[in-house]
Design a protein around this nucleic acid. Sequence first.
DNA 1: CCGATGACGGTATATTATAACATCGGGTGA
DNA 2: TCACCCGATGTTATAATATACCGTCATCGG
Lengths: 155, 155
Amino acid sequence: MTVKRSSLNEILKIAEILCNQRGVRLTVQRRKVLELVCAAEGPVGAYEILDRLRESVDNPAPPTVYRALDFLLEQGLIHKLESLHAFIGCSHPSHPHASQFLICSDCGGVSEIESSGISNSLRQAQERTGFKTKRPVVELLGTCAQCQRTAVPKE
Amino acid sequence: MTVKRSSLNEILKIAEILCNQRGVRLTVQRRKVLELVCAAEGPVGAYEILDRLRESVDNPAPPTVYRALDFLLEQGLIHKLESLHAFIGCSHPSHPHASQFLICSDCGGVSEIESSGISNSLRQAQERTGFKTKRPVVELLGTCAQCQRTAVPKE
DNA sequence: CCGATGACGGTATATTATAACATCGGGTGA
DNA sequence: TCACCCGATGTTATAATATACCGTCATCGG
Ligand SMILES: [Zn+2]
Ligand SMILES: [Zn+2]
Ligand SMILES: [Zn+2]
Ligand SMILES: [Zn+2]
């Protein structure tokens, strides 16, 4: 159910290139946090990252993590899942895009989709209303195809 | 910018009818919380509701509010704005619908829209992926038409 | 050197949400 | 009637998420 993702090294390499191009600094902590987010199977909470950070950093505090996360969000290297209070690596950070997610409540799997249909209809809604979107949040919470099949086979 | 809403009394009346039809109880607290949410100009946080509840309830605690909110959410009488950690009255609770919101970061205004285009494209994405949505979250964060006009008239 | 800037460390605290357990009151069937 | 259940509520404590604030340090351009 999770999106096919590039290897961790590949992601980090792309991140470095993007940050260089943009003239922003992918510092050690930021890189480490990105690594932790992307290495995770699914979405990870900030304090989960904080815990894992303890293995490589002396005595990390919440602001350390949140600062790194803010940076990574700004750079589009990760996304925030508002409905889960969690973060997940972007599966295609190179080009800007409206993040759209399918979030399975059964297995916890999250897949990032990029539906032009959704993007278009969102754009149309904006045109109609004159609203100018800075950050779209599209999160569908439900059950993935896999979990529907393995669901309680009662009756 | 806020959606044209029915009068408070009208909303409460509809809520009562709906709850009766469904065989669930719109108790005093639930009704009071609904009233507070719907009377607010914009989205309200749980602890904001808690504060306002002090005026009519002896010594309310967080669970009191959250329980009422949970009930109202289940009944579709209010919506939760995930990106704001806040709640807002539903502008058309009588029929089920995917909640879609335009949230202005400048004025704080929120309007609930019901775009069939968005609904359709979401449905299509589900059909393609086999995902079954229980709760869709569509929140566009940005600037409303009004605030764009009144924006800094520099240069 | 000086001042501005950006990243970071560290403490404390704010904000949002839930766990856990006691109580109460209204049906409902023995 | 009464024992029982169950949904709603009261109460205390705590979990989980997020930010304010202040000081330090390094870098860069004058
Ligand atoms: Zn992405
Ligand atoms: Zn699943
Ligand atoms: Zn609604
Ligand atoms: Zn506005």
